[in-house]
Amino acid sequence: MFQRDFTATWPGRGYMGDITCLPLENGEFLCPATVLDCFSRKAVGWSIADHLRTGLVADALRMAASISIAR
């Protein structure tokens, strides 16, 4: 468990993420989900949708996993 320690000694050792929902002028929403590598703080996965359903986060995690495997 992280216990709020978001550091890592090498890339791919730990990830952190965030989702949010941003209101647009037309009354709709833009919802980005991101996954960051705790070592480099670089985005390793992301997804954007108009909803906060599970698929939004799953897509970002899938991208992060595929990048992690490619290393």
Rank of each mutant, 00 (worst) to 15 (best):
A8D: 06
Q3E: 14
V35Q: 02
R13P: 15
S47Q: 08
V44M: 08
L52F: 13
S40C: 07
A33R: 01
R62Q: 08
L36C: 09
A43I: 04
A33V: 00
N26P: 02
W46V: 00
L56D: 09
L24S: 02
N26A: 06
R53W: 14
A58K: 08
F6E: 11
H51L: 07
R41D: 14
A8H: 06
V35M: 04
M16E: 12
I69T: 01
G12E: 01
D50I: 07
W10T: 00
G12T: 03
G45C: 10
T9A: 13
R53Q: 15
Q3K: 08
V44F: 10
M1R: 08
W46F: 11
A33K: 00
L56T: 04
N26Q: 06
A33M: 02
I69A: 14
A43K: 09
W10I: 01
D5A: 03
L22T: 12
E28G: 01
R71K: 12
I48Q: 11
R53T: 15
G14R: 11
C31E: 10
R71P: 00
N26I: 00
I67H: 10
E25N: 07
P32H: 01
W10S: 04
S47N: 10
D50Y: 07
S40W: 07
Y15Q: 10
G55A: 15
R41L: 13
D59K: 07
H51W: 14
V35T: 03
L22K: 06
S47F: 03
F6Q: 06
D37W: 02
T9P: 13
Y15T: 02
L24N: 02
L22P: 15
T54I: 08
L36E: 07
M1L: 11
T7P: 11
M63Q: 10
W46C: 04
G45D: 06
L36S: 05
S40R: 07
T34I: 06
Q3N: 10
A43L: 14
P23A: 05
M1I: 01
G45Q: 06
V57A: 03
T34K: 11
G55Y: 15
R53V: 15
L30W: 13
D37H: 00
V57K: 02
A33L: 03
P32F: 02
E25G: 05
R41S: 14
T34A: 05
A70F: 15
W10Q: 04
S40E: 08
